[in-house]
Simulated scan of single mutants.
Amino acid sequence: MASAQQATLINGYIPGTIGRIAELHGTYYAKHWGFGLYFEAKVATELSAFLKTYDPQRDGLWVVVKNGCVEGGIVIDGSHAWDKGAHLRWFILSDALRGSGWGRELVATAVDFCVEKKYPQIYLWTFEGLHAARHLYESAGFRLVQQHKGSQWGTEVNEQQFVCRLPVL
């Protein structure tokens, strides 16, 4: 735990972010869920496309860095915040940081950003079985609103959408 505390939260893009976030997703989901090339390529492609239009006034990107290496991250895509909601995406932590409190910190930072921007809601897509992540989402105010079998990540899973309705201040 002491080594996890030496990590730092950085707001915004740093070199290596795209590759490392794609790598963390690719290795974790291959090992635990059997996802393959399609999924890792989808993460890398969509994260790259997002960052080409990234606007820090509208979008959020936070990475956790330890010893110069990206060890986790989370994104808020605010491009459709006023009609569909802000989209929470690419939340991941390395094995070295799982269970250290950084996941809760990343989710709280993303939600706080959306509250500050006065976005009406945040949504995310995930799938059944990611119990630790679901616990973090629900403790931050997200609620399951729909689920169905699907294969948007290249493997059939029970896809779930969670929504967090934010207070209008």
Rank of each mutant, 00 (worst) to 15 (best):
Q160F: 09
T27Y: 03
L24M: 09
I21G: 00
F91R: 02
V75T: 09
Y29V: 08
A81N: 10
A41T: 13
W62H: 11
I14C: 04
R134A: 11
I18K: 06
W62P: 11
L124K: 08
C69T: 15
G16M: 07
I14A: 04
Q152F: 00
G68C: 07
V111M: 01
Y13M: 14
W153H: 00
A41L: 11
E46H: 02
G60M: 01
N67T: 14
K84Q: 15
S139I: 01
H32L: 10
V64M: 08
T53A: 13
H148T: 04
T45Y: 01
A44S: 12
A86F: 05
V63E: 12
H131M: 05
A132C: 08
Q146M: 05
L9E: 08
W102P: 06
G68D: 10
A96V: 10
W90S: 07
G99F: 00
T45G: 07
Y13T: 11
V64F: 07
V43S: 04
Y38D: 08
Q152L: 09
K31Q: 12
G99W: 02
T8I: 14
A86N: 10
A86Y: 09
G154V: 02
A132R: 13
Y28H: 12
D59N: 13
T109W: 00
K149N: 00
G34T: 05
L166C: 14
D55M: 03
Y123K: 09
W102Y: 01
H148L: 03
L88G: 06
Y28W: 00
G60A: 12
T8Q: 15
D83E: 04
A41R: 14
G78T: 10
A86D: 11
F39G: 07
L37V: 05
V64K: 05
A133M: 02
A96S: 15
L124Y: 09
V145E: 14
K118A: 05
L169M: 04
S151L: 03
P15Q: 05
A132E: 11
H131L: 11
L97C: 02
A108K: 14
E128T: 11
I74H: 02
Y137A: 09
H80G: 06
N11M: 01
R89S: 13
Q161M: 15
L24S: 06
E105G: 04
E159R: 09
T155F: 01
G72C: 04
P56V: 08
L37N: 08
L144C: 12
Q160W: 05
I18M: 01
L97T: 05
A86G: 15
Q121H: 11
R134M: 09
R104Y: 07
A2L: 10
E46R: 06
S79K: 15
Q147A: 03
L136G: 04
A30N: 10
A81Q: 13
V157I: 12
R98G: 01
F39Y: 15
F142K: 06
L169I: 08
E105Y: 05
A4V: 09
L9F: 13
A30Y: 02
D77T: 02
N67S: 15
L47S: 06
F91T: 03
